[in-house]
């Protein structure tokens, strides 16, 4: 019996060690996770595309032996959360639903800055009879559960006096979404412009040209533990991030061109970002636009049972100190205005 107990203890200790050891592994690597469900490249955020294409992080950290490890997570935002939870990622970059769900369920992360302007299109098969959102009633709708398009669907339904219960939701994403749309297993769902370009689907609604509250507002988050251990690294990282966003904000066409390196055609980028100033799109600030959208989202998610615990993002999520310090150091405090919930600059 004693032997048995000691065997069990050894097993338990083994598991504990396995779970906790990665946290203590001292490697000079910063691991950043991107939701990469469809293209295995960052899908939105012009500043990010620019920073990556220019290898700005790598340049900054090369000199003292730190490397940047970019991870494209097929499971999208929820997958990034898992990476942060099991210590295989230090930084994440994801939309309102994954960030808020994670924090609501106790994942210890802080949001350092914003990455705005993600777009999406509500698609139906080319030959579908569905014309409006109201036509979706009772239909099988593909949803990449837990991602920002899931949240987007809730918003769009709410506008039309419907809820998710009016649909048959089928959890699907990426290529599965595309094939399911083709086979008719799902009758609608949010997807990218490329499906329309290839003649697979037709759009019945899109975020392009709509109120900013429909757009994907990502936040750039860090694991609290990493923040505690390497505040200097976080500080430098945020500085590079701000520097890159600043450069991206200077010339829209140039920035769009750089973003084609992330895999999207220039024409698509132009269409998706039409009617929005490059300054707005590249602003990293956690301003009124972000906080209002997140606050509304929290309420909406609670109402739909996607999160169970409400919390105050100001107290638990946002940490603006690094961004403010970087802006100050780079003398960019006045480069970006604060935007209000409608995406309009607030005059000082």
């Amino acid at each position: 019996m004693n032997k048995l107990i000691s065997i069990i203890m050894t097993l338990v200790l083994g598991v504990v060690t396995l779970v906790t050891v990665p946290a203590y592994a001292e490697e000079k690597v910063v691991r950043i996770g991107f939701p990469g469900a469809t293209t295995s490249r960052p899908q939105s955020g012009l500043g990010w595309g620019y920073v990556q294409a220019k290898h700005l992080f790598d340049e900054e950290f090369k000199k003292d032996g730190w490397t940047i490890d970019y991870n494209y997570i097929a499971a999208a935002g929820p997958g990034v959360n898992e990476g942060l939870a099991n210590n295989s990622l230090d930084f994440g970059f994801h939309g309102d639903l994954p960030v808020l769900a994670a924090r609501s369920n106790g994942l210890k992360i802080k949001a350092l800055g914003a990455v705005r302007g993600g777009t999406s299109h509500l698609l139906v098969p080319t030959n579908s009879h569905i014309k409006t959102i109201k036509d979706l009633k009772g239909k099988r709708v593909g949803v990449s559960v837990g991602t920002w398009t899931h949240a987007l669907l809730l918003k769009v339904l709410q506008d039309n006096g419907m809820t998710i219960k009016d649909l048959k939701v089928i959890n699907t994403s990426g290529t599965a979404f595309e094939t399911s749309l083709a086979t008719g297993d799902i009758e609608a769902g949010f997807g990218s412009l490329s499906l329309i370009r290839r003649g697979v689907a037709r759009e019945i609604w899109s975020t392009v040209g709509k109120h900013v509250r429909y757009q994907n507002t990502n936040t750039f988050v860090v694991r609290e533990e990493f923040l505690r251990k390497h505040p200097d690294i976080v500080k430098r990282l945020v500085k590079v991030f701000v520097k890159g966003f600043y450069q991206a904000s200077l010339n829209k066409n140039e920035t769009l061109k750089f973003n084609t390196r992330t895999g999207t055609a220039l024409a698509d980028l132009i269409e998706e970002n039409a009617g929005q100033s490059i300054k707005y799109l590249t602003s990293p600030k956690l301003d009124g636009q972000v906080t209002k959208q997140y606050k509304d989202s929290l309420a909406l998610f609670k109402e739909n049972g996607l999160i169970r615990r409400n919390f105050d993002p100001e107290a638990e999520l946002y940490d603006r100190s690094y961004l403010d310090a970087a802006l100050k150091e780079l003398k960019l405090e006045n480069h970006w205005p604060d935007y209000d919930s409608n995406g309009n600059p607030i005059k000082k």
Partner: peptide, 10 residues
């Protein structure tokens, strides 16, 4: 379970 996983509800 899969939905809970995606909503980070361990």
């Amino acid at each position: 379970m899969i939905i809970a996983r995606r909503l980070f509800q361990t």
